[in-house]
Amino acid sequence: MTALPLRVRRRPTFSWVGVVPFFLFAIAALGLPLGFLVIGSFQDREGNLTLQNFSDLTTGTIPIAFMNSIEVSIVTALLGGILGFLLAWAVIMGGLPGWIRSAVMTFSGVASNFAGVPLALAFVFTIGNLGLVTKFLFETFGLSLRRDLGFTIYSKTGIEIVYLYFQFPLMLLIIAPALDGLRREWREAAENLGASAFQYWRHVAFPILAPSILGTMILLFGNSLGAQATAFQLTGGTIELATIAIGRQIRGDVLRNPGLGYAMAMGLVVIMAFSITVYTLLQRRSERWLRS
């Protein structure tokens, strides 16, 4: 055999058969539906190739829906990010008893999963027309949320307050390991070199955390962008959001143009994919730092 290196026995390999069921399922449940949306978004009613659907995205209430979605997502990502970071700092570095940390973390695990219909309902019971807080403020101070403050939960602000309930703990969960990754020696080295606490945060801790914080906020942005159930339950679709508009397309083709619905879906997917790519890149960067 060694004398004839060219006569290598080449057995046909069937090593890929084990993954066939997975790919078949993925194509059927994920590939075909997505492919359908992609192709459909480039077709007109007669099935001809067109870009019209995408330019139609700027018509009617669609831009408003996307703008609202983006606005809600930015606001909840920023606020959720800041508040989540503060709470993470408090339980991890604030010198609180150790059990508080575990309790808050476990609770965050639950809270970040407590979304959709029950969450929307819970907030209605809190700051809705008959909610506990609404009632309390009116009975105690004669203050009406709606009349005096112009606030109603069935609004963009309402959606934002509700979304924060899962955004905030999600931030806490993701940022906690990054805070843990801040090594005590960095703080000590900074102090040793003459830095004040502020200078340490400004020049060392914050720059180290920045990619994680930014990345996680982008993640929260995507998280809020794709949400549908909570907002729908809360407002019944009276506030235009991208997911709500897409939902209407599913129920019945309001605009008599299926291609436009597909284009809306594509638009949302593109924003999501973009934000998640940025998150991944930032996460990689901070991992590289924390590893060294």
Partner: peptide, 21 residues
């Protein structure tokens, strides 16, 4: 005296270099 006012230089076992700089 607080460590940042001591004017004492320290080298740590794990280097403790600032990874972002």
């Amino acid at each position: 005296r607080p460590p940042n006012q001591r004017n004492v230089g320290m080298v740590f076992q794990s280097y403790a270099l600032f990874p972002n700089m």
